[in-house]
Simulated assay, not measured.
Amino acid sequence: MTTVFWAGFWTFLLDQASKYFVVHFLDLRVRGEIDVLPPFINLRMAWNTGINFGLFADNGDVARWFLIGMAFVICAAVLFWVHKDRPGRLGLISAGLLIGGALGNVVDRFLYGAVADFLNMTCCGISNPYAFNVADITIFIGAFGLVLWGGPQKAT
C-alpha cells in the first residue's frame, strides 16, 4: 500500500502545485487566458462547479458537497479494492494516480468552491472549448490503468 500512498502523494502535490502556479503566480484567475503554444496548448481559466464538461454545474452547494462526498467514497472503494485484491505494481500506481487526482479536485472544491481547470488543447482545426487540469489527467490514466492492471497479481 505504500506504492499507492506515494503515487497518490506525488500526484496530489503535482496537481496542487500546478494549480497554485497557474492560478496565483501567473494570475490566470484575473488574466483569463495565456497562449503557451498556440493553437495546441493554451491556458484558459475555467471554474468547474460540476463534473466532467461542466455537467450538473447549476446545482450550487448541493452539487459541491455531493461531489466531495462521492470523491471520498470512490477513494475509499479503490483503496478497499486494491487492499483486497492486491494488484501488481502498475495497478497500485494506477490506484494512487486516481486517488491523488480525486483528492486534488476535492481540495479545489473546499478552497474555491469549484475545480480549477486551466489546460486547453486544440488540434487539427477543431476548436476545443473545454479546459482540464493535472488531476483530471491522472484520474483518467489511473482509472484506465486499473482496468488494465487492477486485478489480483497472479502467482508465477
Results as ranks from 00 to 15, higher is better:
Phe132Gln: 05
Tyr20Asn: 11
Cys75Gln: 05
Gln153Thr: 12
His24Val: 12
Phe144Glu: 07
Asn133Ser: 00
Leu43His: 02
Val22Asn: 05
Gly54Gln: 11
Asp27Lys: 12
Gln153Arg: 14
Ala114Gln: 11
Leu43Cys: 11
Leu37Val: 14
Met1Pro: 00
Ile137Cys: 08
Gly50Asp: 13
Leu97Met: 10
Tyr112His: 14
Tyr20Pro: 11
Val22Phe: 10
Val134Ala: 08
Asn105Thr: 02
Pro38Asn: 04
Val134Tyr: 05
Ile99Met: 04
Leu55Ser: 14
Ile51Tyr: 02
Gly104Gln: 03
His83Cys: 07
Gly32Tyr: 08
Ile139Ala: 03
Val30Pro: 00
Asp117Tyr: 05
Asn120Gly: 09
Arg109His: 01
Asp15Arg: 12
Pro38Ala: 10
Gly8Trp: 04
Ile141Val: 12
Ala63Gln: 15
Leu146Gln: 02
Ala17Thr: 03
Ala102Gly: 03
Lys19Thr: 05
Ala114His: 14
Phe56Pro: 13
Phe66His: 13
Ala95Thr: 07
Tyr20Ala: 09
Gly125Met: 11
Leu119Asn: 10
Val22Arg: 03
Phe140Leu: 13
Pro38Cys: 05
Cys75Lys: 03
Gly69Ser: 12
Leu43Tyr: 10
Asn120Ser: 13
Asn120Lys: 08
Leu92Trp: 02
Phe132Leu: 06
Leu98Glu: 03
Phe9Gly: 01
Val134Ser: 01
Leu146Asn: 01
Cys75Val: 11
Ala76Gln: 06
Val36Asn: 05
Pro39Asp: 02
Ser127Trp: 13
Arg89Glu: 01
Met70His: 02
Gly151His: 11
Pro38Arg: 07
Val106Ser: 01
Phe9Ala: 13
Val4Lys: 00
Glu33Phe: 09
Ala155Arg: 15
Phe66Ala: 15
Ala57Trp: 11
Pro129Asp: 06
Arg31Cys: 03
Ile99Pro: 03
Ala7Arg: 02
Thr2Tyr: 08
Val82His: 06
Ala63Ser: 09
Tyr20Trp: 14
Asn52Phe: 10
Ala77Arg: 03
Gln153His: 10
Ser18Thr: 15
Ala71Met: 08
Val134Arg: 01
Pro152Asn: 13
Ile41Pro: 05
His83Ala: 13
Leu148Ile: 06
Val106Asp: 01
Leu67Ile: 11
Ile51Ser: 12
Gly91Ala: 04
Leu92His: 09
Arg44Phe: 10
Ala76Glu: 08
Gly96Phe: 01
Asn105Ala: 01
Pro129Leu: 07
Phe56Ile: 15
Arg86Ser: 12
Cys123His: 12
Phe25Asn: 02
Ile34Tyr: 06
Gly60Phe: 07
Leu92Asn: 04
Phe80Lys: 10
Gly113Ser: 09
Leu103Phe: 01
Phe72Gly: 05
Val4Ala: 03
Leu103Gly: 00
Asn48Leu: 06
Trp65Asp: 12
Arg64Asp: 10
Phe25Asp: 10
Ala143Asp: 02
Leu26Trp: 07
Arg86Phe: 03
Arg64Gly: 07
Val23Leu: 08
Gly113Val: 10
Ser127Val: 15
Cys124Gln: 08
Met1Gly: 01
Val78Glu: 04
Asn133Lys: 00
Trp149Arg: 04
Phe25Gly: 00
Phe118Ala: 09
Leu119Phe: 15
Phe144Gln: 05
Gly151Ile: 04
Cys124Ile: 08
Phe110Ser: 06
Gly69Arg: 02
